[in-house]
Amino acid sequence: MDKPRIAVYKFSSCAGCQLQFINFESELLDMLGQIHISYFKEATSLVEDPPYDIGFIEGSVTCPHEEKKIKQAREDCKVLVAMGACACEGCINTLKNYRPIEEQVKRVYEHPEYIDTFDKAYGIDHFVDVDAYIHGCPVDRDELREFVVATLMAKKPFLRPHAVCVECKLNENECLLLRENGLCLGSVTRGGCGAVCPSWGRPCFGCRGPNVDANPEALVEIFRKKGYPDDEIRRRFQYFSGETPAFRKGAEACV
């Protein structure tokens, strides 16, 4: 069988997710034994024409020309994968979604008149059908490997639908929510990251979006009991994944 032709696209993003491919380092040769890179600008200037078998999309869609580009990518790729928080949930690009756009453009750019941008930033599934999601900011390398390998083997990848708390307990992390009254979103955020932030003593920011049966209203109650003002809780829910239905519920539960 021919090796599947892979494309890796960049939209509004920091390029950290695609870097995870390159970070496979010692495994790169084995990986390249299984896939053919057709389009991956961060890795190679050689570009082959579409169609591609699998397109990995990094980045959110924030402006009209990106909308055109994502629709083209959808046409060019048999399987389209949202890779990382920007492509999945919009990530920190969605911070602009909660304030008037004119105000923000003025604040950032010297010549706002050159800026042609949407009022809001979106994950790519706002514009196109997406076949699979790999969450995280950036994506976790083990999960990326699991996804690529499982896809090549026509197998359902093991990507945890559970809360980050599971991996926190497996790692024996001390609970930041309980022990430090931290504003930790781990209990409503999809794990699979190995609880990387809490393992380094940082509360979960929810970059991976909600876990499958997240209960954000319950967490809002817990934060309130710990004395957090609603405004701060809402901002935490809106930090990385505010446009997901579950985190929106969390934000809306705050007055």
Binding site: G33, E146, V166, C175, S187, N215
Partner: peptide, 25 residues
């Protein structure tokens, strides 16, 4: 929150998942 904490810290809970993890080759 269905976070699983109560069971993961429980001394009698024993349930496990089994998964085949494959490498790039």
């Amino acid at each position: 929150l269905s976070c699983g904490t109560c069971t993961l810290v429980c001394p009698t809970c024993f349930c496990y998942h089994v998964e085949d993890f494959n490498r790039f080759n």
